[in-house]
Amino acid sequence: MGSGFVTLFIVSLIIFAAIAVLPGDFAKVALGRSATPETVANFQRSLGLDRPVTERYVSWIGGAVKGDLGVSFSSGPGTPRTVNSIIGPRLKNTLFLAAIAALISVPMALLFGIIAAIRRNSWLDRSLNALTLVGISFPEFFVAYVLMLLLAVKLPIFYSLARITPGMDVVEIAERLALPVATICFGIIAHMMRMTRAAIINLLSSPYIEMAKLKGTAPWIIVLRHALPNAWAPISAVIAFNLAYLIVGVVVVEVVFVYPGIGQAMVDAVRSRDIPVVQGCALIFATAYILLNLLADVIAIATNPRLAHPR
């Protein structure tokens, strides 16, 4: 727990330092080529960019701890736009997409992984393996465009744009999000399933599995009762990694389907050098990673009998 906070603190330093040394100046970009040095300096002062780096960091991190990520550079005079108001709705959209994808992909990955482990080297296992290898190998945007071509253009069942607005009903949202969710799931199911299968099969050569066989236990009970409970640590680690990816790494999918998520917000902010938004996104990504990995560690500890039931 403590180490999570320390990591987060170090990450915040790195984020801030990295952005501070980046070339490019928001003031110059915003004011255009014709800006005089005076106007640039004035503008910088109004944004607080003239203050020393350390001071800016302290005020930024101080606000972030309280949940305030600062004010966007895109604020007009007199109409301040907070970073929270820009990122907030986008984050909600991303979490929504991630939650749906997770609810579909995690149970499917576990199920396929377990089935593949039980029936290993059967035709079922081989075809699942081949399919998931394809899933991992193709880049996401390619899968996205292929799905779009097949299911939105040739057979217009779903929408190629995943724009959702408040007030849509569930069926409509499901139709709109079907293709992005499918694209994401295709990749992460493959990864999680293969790791589940590997973690279980890795245990199947253990002496206690041989013992279970010699007790006449049926193969599927061996996997479910004797192998799976010992495999939760590696499985939860790979699931945490993939769930973090759902939040952090879906930017390509969001761009392809024009879905208003946080990834796209960050890309836009980078383009316009809106540093507070970039920093805010980066900090949220880091937090998501750290929290999910922490959760995986907790599961690993809770399922390890040596730690859960000390002598």
């Binding site: 002496p207 206690y208 013992m211 007790k215 040596r306």
Partner: peptide, 18 residues
């Protein structure tokens, strides 16, 4: 197996599911 013929392994420490 396990009911009519049973087996006792060498290393009990590794032959029990932890």
């Amino acid at each position: 197996r396990g009911t009519r013929v049973a087996y006792v392994a060498q290393s009990a420490a590794t032959s029990f599911n932890p």
